[in-house]
């Protein structure tokens, strides 16, 4: 049921036009952060206001929306954003990756490969990959303009000097089409290889920081690294304790105060689909099904 007190998908049409223009410029210059006039949303900054605005500008009445928070469909953030668009847009929602046409995500890319016709909307806290190296916006803007990314390589080098390897494990910087260095939002670096060559459209929205950027389908995205320290997508060295998957990204869950723990897929839809297909892990024997 649409709540008729609101315009379709909450935002007014002028705001949507402004966001849509920013998205199109982002698509035209992949990896470049387009400034936009971010609006106050009925949720606090840090809860996905950027992603919500991008989603609102993209949604059509025919869309099916999925929202995930670190892979999970059932957390507060995901549930309330899904409800928000059910109420203000009247759109269908789902938890199944394959059924969704628009997927808003916080910090994960679904395990199931995306396809043409899908849009993945990322919630982004700090869009500027150079921000923690150079706090001044005037300077980082110049660095992007001049393609001056030496500082980022120094940072990765210092990781190696200090820890023996590149210890950056999330929000791992990427180079887009050989031009812009981009923050892929705090997704685990496990997900980085899915950024490039993806048949879906990927849009990034940072509400507080007022930036939108984009990756068109099949864009070349390279995780920064060194010849002698190549990029490695890493995950916990375990199988999922519920579905037994050995290749998915895992969350570690502490189960008691005596060192007990379990590892489960962070993508809940992926894990549930596998279990309903009969896959079992260490802590979900057959008789529990």
């Amino acid at each position: 049921m649409t709540d008729h007190a609101y315009n379709f998908a909450y935002l007014d049409e002028a705001t949507k036009r402004m966001i849509r223009r920013a998205i199109l410029k982002g698509i035209a210059v992949p990896g470049y952060q387009v400034p936009f006039a971010s609006r106050e949303m009925p949720m606090p900054y840090g809860w996905g206001t950027g992603g919500v605005q991008v989603t609102a500008a993209c949604l059509t009445p025919e869309d099916t929306l999925k929202v995930i928070d670190q892979g999970a469909d059932d957390t507060t953030n995901a549930v309330s954003i899904r409800k928000f668009f059910e109420r203000t847009g009247g759109v269908e929602t789902t938890t199944h990756t394959s059924e969704a046409s628009v997927i808003q995500t916080r910090h994960r890319i679904p395990e199931e490969p995306l396809r043409e016709g899908q849009i993945l909307v990322y919630q982004v806290p700090i869009p500027e990959p150079l921000r923690f190296l150079e706090p001044r916006e005037s300077e980082t803007r110049k660095m992007h303009a001049l393609e001056e990314y030496g500082l980022m390589h120094v940072k990765l080098y210092e990781d190696i000097a200090r820890h023996g390897e590149i210890s950056t494990s999330y929000a791992y910087p990427v180079n887009v089409e050989g031009r812009y260095v981009m923050d892929p939002s705090p997704i685990p670096k496990f997900d980085n290889p899915k950024l490039g060559g993806n048949p879906a459209i990927q849009l990034f929205g940072a509400g507080r920081e007022q930036r939108i950027y984009a990756l068109p389908p099949f864009t070349e995205v390279v995780s920064l690294d060194f010849e002698d320290h190549p990029f490695q997508a890493s995950k916990a060295d375990h199988d999922c304790d519920l579905c037994g998957c050995a290749t998915s990204y895992l969350d570690e869950v502490i189960t008691d105060d005596r060192g007990g723990r379990m590892f489960v897929c962070s993508d809940t839809d992926f894990c549930e689909s596998r279990r309903s297909a009969g896959h079992r892990g260490r802590l979900s024997p057959e008789e529990m099904a």
């Binding site: 049409e13 949507k16 849509r20 199109l24 059509t60 025919e62 984009a214 068109p216 389908p217």
Partner: peptide
């Protein structure tokens, strides 16, 4: 129906721009 029609139109333009 401006909100619905412009949403559909934008998606067509977005697809056009994203898939030259």
């Amino acid at each position: 129906q401006a909100p619905q029609q412009s949403a559909r139109a934008f998606r067509a333009v977005l697809e056009a721009m994203a898939r030259p």
